Computed example of a mutant assay.
Amino acid sequence: MWIYIAGCLGIGLLAAAMLVVWPRAGLLARWKAARLFARRCQREDALKHLLHQEANGRPVSLESLAGAVQLKTDAAADLMEDLEARGLTRLEDGHFQLTPPGRELAAHVVRAHRLWESYLADQTGVGEREWHAQAEQQEHLLTPEETEALAARLGHPRLDPHGDVIPESGEPLPADVSQSLNTAPLNTPLVITHLEDEPVKVYDQLAAMGLGPGVNVSITERLPHQVKICAQGVQHVLAPLQAQNVGVEVAAEVVRPPQAERFLSSLDLGQKAVVLGLSPACRGPERRRLLDLGFVPGTEVRVAMKSPLGDPVAYEVRGTTVALRQDQARYIRIAEPVALAA
């Protein structure tokens, strides 16, 4: 009996040991593979930072690199030594520079990231707050061949959902041309051209306000600790960090100033209005769904019912009652509402 028990224990220990040290599928092998992948991601993230700084004519310091890849300065120095040893960077006149192979790899990672975000925005139902996090993973997994296949599937888009240019293979990364809400002129019709997706927490806050590329905005007041804006007919107060992450340009053509824009979410019970169109911030499946429901230019919409908490709201459109959340209704641009129904 004891011999049988000892034999079973021995087999169990052997199986456990094999589970840990099995060359390709063991826990130790997986741990090593995960470490190697994490290290590769750090290298590629560092190259992306160098590429962005190079495109905008800004030097790279160990401090800026450490902040970009979330490492301590000593670890960032080790990372730069690794990149230089691999022939991806070089130190020139006291500044870190990309070598041609390093620039090519960095451009591929940036291209893969922006294409994947475009895929999530236009082809899936993934929420916009998840685009960046998922693209951060996929950018390190897509091969150049897979990236080109994805670009072809999407019709070779030129801009990603945040308004960033998607560089073609071999094409240099263009410099950022927009200015932030911290420096743009006051009381001037502006259009958002870029929404920075890092830090993710700040991006989530801006997205929750309905801000995005193509949205009209104006700055009504700028104080040392806050920037007041009007976007989609709603007033917002931004902290300087939030305002810095919104890139804008002066609107070339203004049909209605941002303060005068009206959206379906502003209607009261019984009011009706004519749809002018959808906000450019509405993309992918969400946009297709609203169009399929009948929210197209020229359609009359009436508020039929509001829930006790005011969300969702039922609208009559083309003889059908449709329930929308307020964050959906704010995408639908309308003309001036008609007086309340009797």
Rank of each mutant, 00 (worst) to 15 (best):
G57P: 04
A76T: 04
G277S: 12
T183S: 14
V21W: 15
I332H: 01
W116D: 00
V255R: 14
Q326N: 13
R114H: 12
Q271C: 09
S169P: 15
H113Y: 06
R289I: 05
A175K: 06
A55V: 05
T220Q: 14
V274E: 11
S169I: 08
A106L: 03
G310C: 06
H156P: 03
I229M: 10
V126F: 03
Q53C: 14
E146R: 11
P23A: 12
E253Y: 14
V126L: 04
L211D: 00
E44Y: 10
Y4N: 13
A314N: 09
P297F: 09
L293G: 01
W22M: 15
A75P: 00
L206R: 04
Y119A: 00
A6Q: 12
E249K: 07
L98T: 02
V301C: 04
H236G: 06
L142Y: 00
P285Q: 15
V303N: 00
A304H: 12
H194N: 09
A6T: 11
M80E: 04
K272A: 15
V296Q: 15
P297H: 06
A152Q: 10
G310S: 08
R283K: 14
V227R: 01
P224A: 10
A17I: 13
A304C: 09
L71I: 10
V338D: 05
D176P: 08
A107K: 02
M305A: 13
I166M: 03
L141S: 01
R330W: 05
G310D: 08
A68C: 10
D122I: 03
H52T: 08
R39H: 13
A231L: 08
A68G: 06
L14D: 08
R86V: 03
L98Y: 03
D78A: 09
G163N: 02
G214W: 00
A75M: 07
V313R: 01
V60E: 02
S61D: 10
K306P: 00
R318H: 12
A107R: 05
E198I: 04
A243G: 04
L309S: 15
V200Q: 04
D78I: 06
L159M: 11
G284M: 02
Q226H: 13
L309F: 11
V234H: 14
P224K: 09
K72L: 11
I334H: 03
A260F: 10
S178Q: 07
L141K: 09
L105E: 01
V20P: 00
I3R: 11
L142R: 00
V215A: 07
P185H: 11
E136P: 01
V338F: 10
E316L: 15
E196F: 08
E104I: 07
V313D: 01
Q138A: 11
R35E: 08
N187D: 13
D164W: 10
D197G: 03
